[in-house]
């Protein structure tokens, strides 16, 4: 079952086209990563999907409903981690969650359970304004998970976080994936995408320039002839398996090869090859 289905989506602000003829889908229990540098249109795409922005052309369905008129039923099944955290700064961590637990008619035990999951139980009485950046983001994630959503929208959830918080969030998201929670993630961190996502889309200037499983994309741009060799004298060589076959045979015969690797491109390399720009901008 398709949780999100986007077809020929176009969005412009005044005359500036932000998203062009976009097509993507998210299956139940799948994690889709939308990768792109700042300004590529990732946040706009999320805002369209959650019904905050209208679309100019095409269609965007979330749980089969038009994103422009999402019902309460869809929001009940959706958790959000947006760039605006929307925390009540003067209230405690627990009270921040209690408000939303009451709105969703959720028992108080669930608050403790979620706080344990994001490792914030010891900080339950701390005011939100006193939390570190990592803790704040974990609190936002806790709020998003409180009502046991079936779909999570995560807009750069680990951006500029410390490694401990990032690892904790990654671990939590992997657990959610196992529980068949669908995740739409935007990021410009390719390691994060590789770790969490089943499929990714490379967004550049509003267009999805590549989309599919990470392995398939890497395979598509992989030049199998390029080899990286480390010699016993610790010299590093990039050689072509066909053109430099004689040299490689020579090194092998002489027993001079310490390590030999195929040169697989990273997502960053592929993005740079396709756009001429770096991903992590």
């Amino acid at each position: 079952m398709k949780v999100i289905q986007i077809e020929h989506l176009q969005k412009a602000f005044q005359n500036n086209i932000i998203l062009k003829d976009l097509r993507l889908s998210l299956e139940e229990g799948e994690c889709f990563g939308c990768l792109g540098p700042s300004g590529a249109g990732k946040t706009t795409l999320v805002r369209i999907m959650i019904g905050q922005l209208d679309i100019d052309q095409g269609r965007c369905l979330v749980f089969g409903e038009d994103s422009r008129h999402l019902s309460a039923r869809v929001y009940e099944k959706t958790g959000l981690v947006l760039d605006e955290q929307g925390l009540y700064e003067r209230m405690s961590v627990y009270d921040n969650l209690k408000i939303f637990a009451d709105i969703h008619r959720i028992e108080d035990e669930r608050i403790t359970e979620v706080l344990k999951k994001v490792d914030l139980l010891d900080e339950a009485d701390k005011k939100a304004c006193r939390l570190s950046k990592g803790m704040r983001q974990r609190l936002v994630l806790a709020r998003a998970l409180l009502h046991r959503p079936r779909l999570l929208f995560l807009d750069e959830p680990t951006s500029a976080l410390d490694p401990v918080s990032r690892h904790l969030i990654h671990h939590l998201l992997l657990t959610l994936k196992q529980q068949q929670v669908s995740i739409f993630l935007t990021t410009h961190n390719m390691q994060e995408a590789a770790l969490l996502c089943d499929r990714i889309g490379l967004l550049h200037e509003g267009s999805m320039i590549e989309e599919g499983r990470i392995d398939d994309i890497i395979e598509k741009y992989h030049n199998h002839l390029a080899l990286h060799i480390e010699l016993t004298d610790h010299r590093h060589l990039n050689l072509d398996a066909q053109k430099d076959a004689d040299d490689i045979c020579h090194y092998l015969k002489e027993g001079k090869i310490l390590k030999i690797h195929s040169n697989e491109p990273t997502l960053e390399d592929i993005f740079k090859k396709l756009t001429g720009k770096r991903l992590n901008l």
């Binding site: 929001y75 947006l82 929307g86 925390l87 709105i103 009502h147």
Partner: peptide, 13 residues
């Protein structure tokens, strides 16, 4: 400004 109102709206308030 903080986005808290938006979060309330997304929670069906």
């Amino acid at each position: 400004e903080s986005g808290a109102l938006r979060m309330l709206m997304y929670s069906n308030v």
